[in-house]
Simulated assay, not measured.
Amino acid sequence: MRQWYLALLSVFASLPAMALTFQTRLESIEWTVEGDKFECRLSQPITDFGAGEFVRRAGEQATFRLKAYNAIIGGGSATLLAAAAPWQPGRGDINLGAVQIGSGNVLFRSSQVQAARLINGLMDGRSPVLRHSSGDGRVSEVRLLPVKFSKAFSEYQGCVARLLPKNFEQVKQSRIGFHGQSIDLDGQAKAQLQEMLEFMKADPTVNHIELDGHSDNSGNRLTNRDLSRRRALAVMEFFKANGIQESQITLRFHGERYPLAPNTTAANRAKNRRVNVHLARMAPTEKPAPRATATVSAASTS
């Protein structure tokens, strides 16, 4: 413990003149882990300032953000560092680049690359440091310490292992393709729909599905329209078989009217044979926005 205090004294001695440093006293440092299937957070409170926090959303890598109670640090650019520990002589700080300081509760969010390097630094005894210089020459620093990090990081990794494969922005829309004149779901299509289904089961607020069936122009217009309907029905039946109520599904079919690409090549026609699936959060009294095309309710297509 005495070595830690001596090391911290050397940190203060090495700071530029007029520097203002925010960090928690050594004996009070704690890392906390919170999260669920959608997001994991690993944070260290910073006395009289706020908190530094690693955040990892489902389907993404972690980012680092700095939260402040008040507008203590002015706006503009600041430097993010993985600062060397003073008890490891000969090691320099790692400059992770500039970040822009905002005016809200969250001062900045790092890139995923910067966050990964901060985590690696903490495992190596380094401190995440934000250094900001004002126009009058004053320097402000916000510092997290690596004390107790390894144990907390292990708990955080346990949280990460329970995250869903994707977050809502990544899973809310999908395009299900079909071969030739087929209306059958292949393995890839079922895997795509399964991801959407798992998210709906994890988040009950995602409670509505919109299905839009499409075809290429290989057949006549009536045949193509019927194909697009039967493909949308195939997707609807997948969801119904896995516990989704028919009342939660809106089904539309458009035939060849809305191609993604000109039907001039086999590859383009494959793109156009599809069902677009869209997940939504809807209040009980809310209805899907109407579209200027043939629309039927799920009940009327059975």
Results as ranks from 00 to 15, higher is better:
Y5D: 07
Y5Q: 08
A7R: 03
S10V: 00
F12D: 07
A13M: 06
A13V: 02
S14K: 03
A17S: 10
L20Q: 12
S28I: 08
T47I: 07
R57P: 08
R57C: 05
G59P: 07
R65Q: 06
K67G: 04
Y69D: 06
I72P: 03
A84Q: 10
P86V: 05
P89E: 08
P89L: 02
I94Y: 10
G102L: 03
A115M: 02
D124V: 03
L130W: 09
L130T: 04
H132I: 08
G135E: 15
G137W: 14
V142D: 08
K148S: 06
F149P: 00
K151D: 10
K151S: 03
V160L: 09
A161I: 07
R162A: 01
R162W: 04
L163F: 09
L163D: 07
F168W: 08
E169Y: 08
Q173I: 04
I176G: 11
F178S: 02
G180R: 04
G180N: 05
L193I: 03
Q194S: 13
L197S: 09
M200I: 06
M200R: 11
A202D: 12
A202P: 15
D203W: 08
P204F: 06
N207P: 13
H214Q: 06
S218T: 05
G219T: 00
R221Y: 09
N224C: 02
L227A: 05
S228T: 01
R230D: 10
A232G: 11
V235C: 07
E237P: 04
F238N: 11
N242L: 05
N242E: 09
I244V: 15
S247A: 14
S247R: 14
Q248R: 15
R252F: 14
H254G: 15
H254N: 15
P262A: 01
T265K: 00
R269I: 00
N272F: 02
R273I: 00
R273D: 10
H278C: 09
K287Q: 12
P290Y: 03
T293E: 10
T293D: 09
V296C: 05
A298W: 06
T301P: 05
